[in-house]
Amino acid sequence: MNVIETLGLGKRYRDTWALRDCTLSIPEGHMAALVGPNGAGKSTLVNILAGLAVPTTGTVAVLGGRPAGSPAALDGIAYMAQDAPVYKNLSAADMVHITGNLNRLFDEPYAKRRLAELDIPPGKKAGRLSGGQQAQLALTLALARRPRLLILDEPLAALDPLARRDFLATVMVAMADDGVSVLLSSHALAELERVADYLVVLRGGEPRVAGQADDLLTGHRVLTGPAAEADAIAARASVVQDKRAASGFASRSASGSASQAHLLVRVGADDPVPPGWEAHPVTLEELALAYLRAPADPNPQDQLHPERIEASR
């Protein structure tokens, strides 16, 4: 089952396309990181998935074909918006009770136990809790709904390192215990490297790359070798990022030594390393940064659907 399935999704605000040509199919059981700079369209996509915004073009289905925003979709999706909005003048216990009364499925004992574990005083007004506690309260309310898909929009931005870790640990345990799928948007990837096993990179409103972390990591390499041969390599492989020493366009630098090039390329599992070149594995962060910096790909469909290329071989 795909928890998220979009086809040609687009959203226009007046004259600006906040999201366009967004085609994704994210299978269940993953923690998908949705990364991109501010204004890349992350919140727009997340709002559409949560049923808060209506797309201008394209189709969107969640949880195996339920229309986003439909009652069936809302029953199975818990959404925690940016800045963890809670009613500031209501107590944590009130928030639990209110959420319980607005959902057909709600695990109130779990919510109460977790608040106790987190040392969040049930009677204290939510507005007086620390940023970390508010985030944990919002997360507790979301998890107590026992969702199939948990959508978190920039949940870590306002948290200190310890609170981030606790927050992520809670999400990861919910994945282990309940099999909940997670979509987490963030503009900082470094801390997601350990938790995300699916990556969607969004830039300028368009997905640049999307796929399971393992597939992306095995499907990409950094090739390091003489800059003089870089063009020949680039002609045969699909280069995501091309870094050459400043003198790279002359075959020899002033001192006569060969200048170096690093090419981040997409490779098949059995592609040989060109003679004289060294291949290094990439990290998820490196990969995401490369796609965020890369010029628009002439053939983005290949990147988005590596399986399609496999199938056509």
Partner: peptide, 18 residues
């Protein structure tokens, strides 16, 4: 104004019914 609609309108009850 406060952004709580993102909470209130994504609960299982559904925005329109609520």
């Amino acid at each position: 104004e406060t952004g709580t609609f993102r909470y209130a309108w994504t609960q299982g009850i559904g925005r329109e019914r609520w």
